[in-house]
Amino acid sequence: MMGYSDEFKTHLASGATTLCRTWAIMRSDGAVFGFTDHDVNLTFEGITFKADSGLTAMALAQSTGLAVDNTEAIGALRDAAIKEADIEAGRFDGAEVRAWLVNWADVSQREMQFRGSIGELRRTNGAFTAELRGLTEALNRPLGRVYQKPCSAVLGDRACAFELTAAGYFAELAVEAVEERQVFRFDALTGFDDAWFARGRLIGQSGACVGLSGMVKRDYFDEQTRVIELWAPMRAPIVAGDMIRLEAGCDKRMETCRLKFNNIANYQGFPDLPGDDWTVVPPSQSGISVGGSRR
């Protein structure tokens, strides 16, 4: 019971406890959802934890050291709680999860038992199962620089430092025509070079796709119509009239960084790194290794 308050310790030692579990899920868009296995709603930390959500949790596996804590949450898909469309759109991917053991008779007596994020999320037959990963999961991610010719930064991130809000590097406009959530056609998208948005992003600004994004595969002209094709369909319905934002793309080459973005000072690649052909060149047989031409 290390870490519990004195009042909570006294309650746990009483032999007649009034305990339940609660979970809070915060998505990247700021939406917060609260759940409890108690039979009435509970409220603390500005969150209402709903009792009718159908959410339950499996045993929490915790350990000392750097091993990853993990558990699973299982629940029914309900319009009032977690919607199937939101799961399909990926809105719960990577969402923050917190779990408490709570005295429902006095919610000030509680202890957080888990904090992490949603990992793999599966849904079937009107229900979902979410894998919950502890904070030590971040230690499994590879860190450090990669020595390669192309730039290793993501356009606009901290390493790149380029401002995608600069004039000429984005466009905000309404969808004119869309095919299968993947191919967009515009008659009024002018003022940008051919392929300007290739490898960039399309971000939903309104409608069912608000906050969702897709990577641009191709940006080209079909006669007078400009076509923006994504690598994969948007994960929610998108229709004519919905507002979107298009951001310029980067192919990671030094020439693009210098000429298109004027950002060569932040280029994160190694353009002079020898290629594979250089590494397999056999040693010289002539005995002359001064670097000059042979005569």
Rank of each mutant, 00 (worst) to 15 (best):
F261G: 04
W100L: 11
V102L: 02
K83E: 12
N266D: 14
E255V: 12
A57V: 03
R27D: 03
G275C: 10
V227L: 00
G30K: 06
Q224C: 11
G204Y: 00
G75K: 01
R235V: 05
V107K: 11
S152F: 02
F221C: 09
Q109F: 10
S213G: 11
R201G: 09
A208Q: 07
E131I: 08
C257M: 03
L60Q: 13
G241E: 07
N263V: 07
E88V: 15
P233V: 06
S28L: 12
G211T: 02
T190L: 08
L139Q: 06
S289M: 12
L164N: 03
V183C: 11
S206H: 03
G90F: 00
R226S: 09
T17C: 11
L173H: 09
L12V: 09
E96A: 11
V290K: 13
A24N: 03
D187Q: 12
F170M: 08
R122Q: 14
A80K: 07
V146P: 00
A130N: 02
T225R: 05
L132W: 10
L202C: 00
D272C: 11
G200L: 04
F128V: 03
P237W: 00
I244P: 06
R133M: 10
A76S: 15
S117H: 08
V40R: 15
A195C: 03
G241Q: 06
W23H: 02
E72W: 05
R115D: 08
